[in-house]
Amino acid sequence: MSSKKELFKYILWRLTLLPIMLWIISSLVFILLRIAPGDPVDAILGTRANEFARESLRIKLGLDQPLSNQYIEYLNQLIHGNLGISLNTQEPVKVIISKALPASLELALFSILIASLVGYLIGFSGALKPEGKIDFLGRIFGIGTYALPPFWAAMLVQIIFAVLLGWLPIGGRLPPGVIPPPTVTGFLLLDSVLDKNIEILFSSIKHLILPSVTLGILLSGIFSRSLRLNLEEVFKKDYIEAAKSRGINYKKILIKHALPNTLLPMLTITGLTVSSLIGGALLIEITFSWPGIALGLQEAINQRDYSVVQGIVIIISSLVVMISVVIDIAIAYIDPRVSY
């Protein structure tokens, strides 16, 4: 950015586009769910219910109204923060999401932490000696982890570390029958700390290790390859060639000149990966019976609970859009060379 005024205009422009993007996403969700096969009345009452019961429920759900009226009412409810009522449990959708979202966030954050540490370490180690053994193994690791099917990797990890070795639990957030601490934040680790319950804290950590490490390792290949490729691009720049011509040590050039210039694209990749993981770790959550929002989405789809599906998709999409906007603003603020 050439000036603070341009930066302010860019931030204002991005924030202005935010509600428009959310409106477009919400409208697409509404349309897609309405044209999808299946009837929510059949999902609740079954196909053998009498016509009077079916029609009464259709009126109660507002499905007897014209599509335009349903859309207006839908937007009105969204503006007021009402995501509807579950068709199966009659529980408010926002309550269902508030219970499941912290579990997904907890898993996503720890997975990203592991992926970043492992991926960046491998990518940086390979860059220290290009075309060396570590660099070659790092490339194989990056391709291999990216290509592994998540469900297969998760089951393999469960068989080895939970079934054969018995080191860690096979799934869930807590052992069956264990009462969780009082919900304050929804994050089990933090709530157990606030409740000063050390037993629950260690138990929740043990349950978190397998899914977070599995997902983190699968993602680490993306980080290692991205860092390595960005470093390769940076090393082609003129200022790197100038530093080499002055006889500066390769390691010093890598750490002081090349690495800082890869931080912005890596920040973008990390941020978008976090946002996509909130609802994208479906196979991992299902395999490890992790009670997150992705597992909740899968169950709602199976039960044709359109209200829950609608609410979860809107929340996930909104989080992805908002995180993307925050990343764009952060990059524009950090890097003065960026122009829009």
Rank of each mutant, 00 (worst) to 15 (best):
R246Y: 04
Y239F: 11
I35T: 10
S339R: 12
S275I: 11
G123Q: 03
D238E: 15
V309T: 05
L259S: 03
E6F: 13
I85W: 13
L117Y: 13
Y306P: 15
H257Q: 00
G144F: 06
Y74M: 14
L231A: 01
G46M: 06
I79W: 12
R304F: 11
I331Y: 13
G247D: 12
R139N: 15
A115D: 03
I323C: 07
T270S: 13
Q303E: 14
G46T: 03
G119N: 10
P149K: 02
S3D: 11
S125A: 14
I240R: 02
L121Q: 14
M322H: 12
N69I: 11
P336Y: 12
I20S: 05
S226R: 04
I200Y: 11
V325Y: 03
L33K: 12
A43T: 13
K206D: 03
E241C: 15
P182C: 04
K133R: 03
G81V: 00
L263C: 14
V95C: 04
R173T: 01
A243E: 13
L259Q: 05
A43Y: 09
R58P: 10
N302K: 14
L61P: 09
P66F: 02
N230C: 13
L201I: 09
F223T: 04
G171K: 05
L164M: 13
D328V: 00
F223R: 04
R48S: 13
A281F: 02
F288I: 02
T89L: 02
L18Y: 09
R48E: 11
Y74E: 08
S203A: 07
A103W: 00
G46Y: 02
Q70I: 06
I72A: 10
S226G: 14
G119S: 02
W152K: 14
E199R: 08
I334W: 01
L101E: 00
L128H: 11
I134Q: 08
S212L: 00
F151G: 10
S98P: 07
Q158P: 04
P260W: 02
F8I: 15
L215K: 08
N69S: 15
L61H: 01
L164Q: 15
G138L: 06
P211A: 03
E91S: 10
I85N: 15
L227D: 00
P176C: 10
A103I: 11
T287K: 08
Q298T: 03
L105P: 15
I59Y: 10
N76T: 15
V320N: 03
S220G: 07
E199G: 13
Q303K: 11
P265L: 09
S86G: 14
G247Y: 05
I240S: 09
Y239H: 09
V95A: 14
I314F: 05
R58Y: 04
N230R: 10
P92G: 04
R337M: 05
I96Y: 07
I286N: 05
F202C: 14
E285Q: 09
Q70W: 06
I134A: 03
V313N: 00
